[in-house]
Design a protein around this nucleic acid. Sequence first.
DNA 1: GCTTAGCATGACACCGGTGGCAAATTGCAT
DNA 2: ATGCAATTTGCCACCGGTGTCATGCTAAGC
Lengths: 336, 336
Amino acid sequence: MAVTIYEIAELAGVSSSTVARILRGDVKESHRRSAETAKRIRRLAREMGYRPNLRARAFSRGRTHGIGLLYTDDAWIFEGMNTEVVHSLVREVQRSKYHLVFAPIDSSGAWEEIVLGGQIDGGVVFHSLPPDVLAAVRERDLPLVLLGDNSDPSISQVVIDDTAGAYAATKHLLGLGHKRIVYFVHDTVKPHCSVAERRVGYRAAMDEAGVEPRECVYSPEENVIDILVRGNDRPTAIVCYSNLEATLIVHAMWQYGVSIPADLSVVGFNDLFATRYMTPPLTTVGFDAATIGELGARMLLQDIELPLEDRKPIVEMVKPKLIVRGSTGPAMRVAN
Amino acid sequence: MAVTIYEIAELAGVSSSTVARILRGDVKESHRRSAETAKRIRRLAREMGYRPNLRARAFSRGRTHGIGLLYTDDAWIFEGMNTEVVHSLVREVQRSKYHLVFAPIDSSGAWEEIVLGGQIDGGVVFHSLPPDVLAAVRERDLPLVLLGDNSDPSISQVVIDDTAGAYAATKHLLGLGHKRIVYFVHDTVKPHCSVAERRVGYRAAMDEAGVEPRECVYSPEENVIDILVRGNDRPTAIVCYSNLEATLIVHAMWQYGVSIPADLSVVGFNDLFATRYMTPPLTTVGFDAATIGELGARMLLQDIELPLEDRKPIVEMVKPKLIVRGSTGPAMRVAN
DNA sequence: GCTTAGCATGACACCGGTGGCAAATTGCAT
DNA sequence: ATGCAATTTGCCACCGGTGTCATGCTAAGC
């Protein structure tokens, strides 16, 4: 059905290799004859609506030009900032004529088909890979880039400076006169290096100010209310692990009549569109999702082009910055 | 590097066809010898870590087992409900050993590579296709399923009953005693059939109640404030086209001290996680995103398996339902 | 024991490009 | 005109499966 180089070759009276090379741009065309045939062949191809069969090319070259989007359920790629990262990833990868393929790592084992079946030339990982998957990928010599995880230094990665972000958030609160500041993590959050990193940043700022750090896990909800509303020694400010905690806390405080930021200051993490329109607009640590996708894609594509032995892991760190909005304010004077 | 059927065939002392057939399950194995060789070959394949080369299979069969995720920038697939639809799409497609490929329709022309290069066997469309793309897809006889758009009856589609949703929302407000109800659309919303359909539902309910319908475009913001805050004859309730309008209105009203729902009732459209935690929690029209993905995927996969002439467009309609939360309340008594 | 339908098997062409190699052609210098 | 290097061109094997066809084998029926 579709036009092939052989049909073009026949009509043009040349061999299929010539057609293939010309349409691929493998010919310098300095000779007079070459330039002429090249022009003729290109015209023919255009007229006949030729499109290289990418299945055939992938087979023959052993390269699909596919990039796997590898993620576990824990990575929540359909939530928050991650969707924006994926968005930029798609864009960047397209620019180099590659395409992105969903490769969820779940019990269905579909990832095996994709990775072991040779459907992709490399993978972008949200956030890290189970050991068996990693082993399989390694065996196939597929280059990888990890996004948002620094657990394996032997793989290239793009990470956010979580420590710096949490540090800045805590500093901001300390600067407003707060002393009783809590670091909050929701208990549905999977153990992930960023949880610890943000904690480190928080603690560093607290230590520096000579204030006692306090941590809390948001669960069960009652527990949180007890701490934030009924507690005797209740905190005046909160550093949230992410926007989830911030959203839930703002909502819970609204229910209990605790005013934000008058009675309680809240800092989130991640600059989602919606946080700008919360009541009050959320002060949060933000970073540019597009940068992460672009860096990741470029690092991966570079590795793919490189011969196996020249590949070496690179780590890129993205600096977040604090965006001050309405959910933080000066500490109450009356604080005991 | 990777194991092929030829290597297995050699070791097993049979032909490559036999290996291929046995590993594909094309053999009934009623004969004694067959059963024995089959067992031997399967064991060998397992021991050698054989994996069929899917590039080769795709080439040979002319089928990639890839499904294109076709979307324009206008479709916002990285926002709101759409991400959930994509999520379920991935899942459902995997169950049938297919994989999803991002195929954004933009000026980069990358979609041509994917569609015309034969990288996919079919496509899921958010929400509709530009004419040139549609023509290209048609020419390749690629089956399609449209999600959330009913503009082309010749293509299978999964649509939400927008009219019924907006009707239910408006009915709810009328039931609470509201008379001055406005239908709100943000001006960044692209012309899309759902805008009109929801308007129809809104109007139907208003007409039924014998109340004058009123529509508004959210832009510029000043305009909205004028209408909702300063207006003499200002509305007491709003039916929003989507959650975007609802979020912005709730936020703006908070700034102007208009209390929701006491002074103004707001109904959104789309049941996002975050709407549950807005202040107040949003009354909204919701539908199950997963259902849409599953239906769409199944319809498409069915079409792919079918011979060209047996394919006929199917339309599935998903019923939304009203979720009453805190942003709607009875109309004020003092209303003139 | 012989026939025969039915299934398993092997041989081989094919899908549509790629890439290495040898042969042909060209431009340029002598 | 001749030689030479540079470049283009054609030929062909190859990538790893699939599917068809002819042949070989098997088990059941007589």
